[in-house]
Design a protein around this nucleic acid. Structure first.
Lengths: 194, 194
DNA sequence: TGACATATAGAACAATCTGTACTGTTACAA
DNA sequence: TTGTAACAGTACAGATTGTTCTATATGTCA
């Protein structure tokens, strides 16, 4: 039914969202307004209101765009340390070098009052968690880790610490640090419950 | 020199900040404005501008008030598991039952562009991290943990996961979960490096 | 191609919010 | 009691937001 959408709609939408994302990264959520996007793109304000009658929707679409960074498929050939390093260094890249690292705090704050914003976070995290899950599942399959290892908690730790360092504590996320992080995770996976 | 401050100053300030904190918790940073505080308190708008000529300052003061929850001194008698449980359950309380749990995401988002906001976070965290540090230091003193255990990383994990669950993932923080969390931390502290 | 539909630009507008200035009044301190 | 300063209240300019309208440009379809 939506077979022949007017290409102008898509073009305007793309152009506007690109500008909105830039504003979001550089000046925060508050800077994302119809007026600001208009000034940056030349798209008239009335047209922007046509596309996004509600400002909240415009901002959420900008959030969404920030959250869509390429998700690399996990490697599950083993050994666990190698696979973990690979998948977590992807997370590091997403946090360090894509828009998400800049924007996530804003989305998290918005999520307090806005259900859509929370969904953006959940979606982003689902992929990442799924990947780490796959890595551990494969390791268990190979017999690298025992049945009694609390895998869910390991996954949470694997992801929580980088998020904490980047978004909350403002600490660096580099590969030296990642090595030590993976070390700890592997120790927990390898050693038997007391 | 500030011996005899006009009591009206302190009274107005207190009253206004209390209202600002409520607005912050219930409706987010954006809701904290001179006008809104005025409406809620009856303090005239012009008086509020007298106290906080810059809106940013008013909001930061509200942040600061949200971050000041009582910090309990750590218990360091041992064993490690008991001490960790005590100090981390304090953190859980702070995140679950004080204003900080509601407000922290907003402060984190503000910290991206506002140095004062970042300081609020750092200050809050310094106390918590210091407490966990003390617990581990005492355990090491008692010989419960070896010299080669990477204590700094354990501290980070101890704190990062609750923060992640509460602020980012939106997962519950209760005592059942805390037990399993302390379990893992104790295992890491107890077992020798490979 | 020509006719129609609609996306857009631009202007105008009311409503709201923000920050400032100025008034008179009230409360505190000496 | 008197002087100082904190306060309430009003007024106002400027900026921002959301809406509505018209005219133009650009696609779509017969």
């Amino acid at each position: 039914m939506n077979k022949h959408e007017d290409p102008r709609l898509a073009a305007t939408r793309e152009h506007a969202l690109e500008a909105a994302l830039t504003l979001l990264k550089e000046n925060g959520v508050l800077a994302v307004t119809h007026a600001a996007v208009s000034a940056r793109t030349g798209i008239s304000r009335s047209t922007l209101y046509r596309h996004w009658p509600k400002l909240e929707k415009l901002r959420n679409d900008a959030f969404l765009r920030a959250a869509t960074s390429p998700v690399f498929a996990p490697r599950t050939n083993g050994p666990l340390r190698t696979d973990l390093t690979w998948i977590l260094s992807n997370l590091l890249t997403a946090l360090n070098e894509t828009a998400w690292g800049h924007v996530a705090p804003q989305v998290i704050a918005a999520a307090a009052t806005d259900e859509q914003a929370r969904l953006v976070i959940v979606d982003f995290m689902r992929d990442r968690i799924g990947n780490v899950e796959a890595v551990f599942a494969a390791a268990r399959e190979r017999g690298e880790i025992g049945d009694d290892v609390p895998v869910r908690q390991l996954i949470e730790m694997a992801i929580a610490v980088p998020y904490f360092r980047k978004l909350i504590a403002g600490l660096p996320l580099n590969h030296e640090w990642l090595d030590t992080h993976v070390d700890i995770l592997c120790r927990l996976a390898a050693e038997p419950q007391h």
